[in-house]
């Protein structure tokens, strides 16, 4: 009898992880999914074939989990973000969860003979700089933390994963995704908060081009990684672009125009009000950080992405 394949999804309370679980189940009906999060799981919708578990990301808890379920695949989507909706998101906590937590997951994946590990990193690792080329490919330096120490955790998490990938490629397949800004109705990251908040101003002095991927398309890419994307690092971005001012004006037409330079100066005061301004976000509102998607395109069928940038923004605007 063939053993049923089991996948572990870390960070299952997140919007992207929820959609990914659904897509994975739809495309692999035989797949059993264990969804884990240290946030409350009681309000998550019931999904056929998906079991939720609330766990602290400590070594002992994880070890028990890996031993009991003998996972075949691990999706690490459980990064603590900088969004202020998470009151625990201090740098020290993020370093612990994102870096130490990732390290635990990598070690356990190797120890427990996981077949494939799929890691979700972020476009932020490259950093937004005035001298960024258009487009940035996967071999580019990860410069984010040079400019902003707040992004140390995401850079370290990425480097940890990619070092692991090269070192252990004979034993375990590892795919590291660096997606552009993921947006969608269920996504609560600093960019979606900026775009949807009427109090967050639209810049007047800088207007870099941006890439946005819809949450559903990102979930499809993650799901495809299970069988069709080999070991490697992949930027994930659609083919089209929009300027940040146009995107912001489209979603919140009533947002006041304001200088990003001035915003940089008063970000500390604004942080106490209705819109939190992570200091690193200012750089991404000033300078471009566009990703080359050529590597990933080699492994995707034509017209794989369902939503254009315009479609994604329109869906964000829906009440």
């Amino acid at each position: 009898m063939v053993k049923q394949k089991t996948a572990l999804i870390l960070g299952i309370s997140g919007g992207l992880a929820q959609i990914t679980a659904k897509v994975l189940r739809r495309e692999n009906p035989e797949l059993r999914i264990i969804g884990v999060d240290n946030r409350p799981i009681s309000k998550l919708p019931e999904l056929s074939g998906v079991v939720y578990k609330k766990l602290r990301y400590s070594r002992n808890d994880f070890e028990r989990l890996f031993r009991s379920y003998k996972f075949d695949y691990v999706f690490h989507l459980g990064r603590m973000t900088h969004a202020k909706s998470n009151p625990r998101a201090s740098l020290a906590q993020r370093l612990d969860l994102n870096v130490m937590g990732t390290n635990r997951i990598l070690e356990l994946s190797l120890e427990h003979n996981i077949k494939k590990l799929i890691m979700l990193s972020t476009w932020h690792v490259y950093g937004a700089f005035p001298d960024n080329s258009i487009f940035i490919n996967e071999n580019s330096l990860l410069r984010a933390s040079i400019q902003n120490a707040d992004l140390r955790d995401v850079v370290e998490m990425d480097q940890l994963s990619t070092n692991f990938m090269w070192k252990n490629q004979a034993e375990i397949e590892t795919v590291v995704f660096r997606p552009c800004s993921i947006i969608g109705p269920t996504i609560q990251n600093s960019m979606t908060k900026y775009l949807t908040n009427n109090f967050a101003p639209v810049g007047i002095d800088y207007d870099p081009m941006m890439q946005f991927i819809h949450e559903y398309d990102m979930a499809k890419v993650l799901s495809r990684a299970l069988k069709s994307i080999p070991t490697g690092i992949y930027n994930v971005a659609p083919d089209d672009f929009i300027s940040i001012q146009d995107a912001k004006k489209f979603i919140t037409p009533k947002a006041l125009p304001f200088s990003i330079i001035a915003l940089e100066g008063i970000a500390k005061i604004i942080n106490q009000t209705s819109w939190s301004v992570p200091s690193y976000l200012i750089d991404y509102l000033k300078y471009p950080c566009l990703l080359s998607n050529k590597e990933l395109q080699k492994h995707l069928p034509k017209n794989f992405m369902r939503y254009s940038v315009q479609d994604s923004l329109e869906l964000m605007r829906l009440p």
């Binding site: 207007d207 870099p208 081009m209 672009f241 929009i242 300027s243």
Partner: peptide
């Protein structure tokens, strides 16, 4: 009509 990646409008 759409801007290109370098921002040309």
């Amino acid at each position: 009509k759409n801007p290109d990646p370098w921002g040309l409008k």
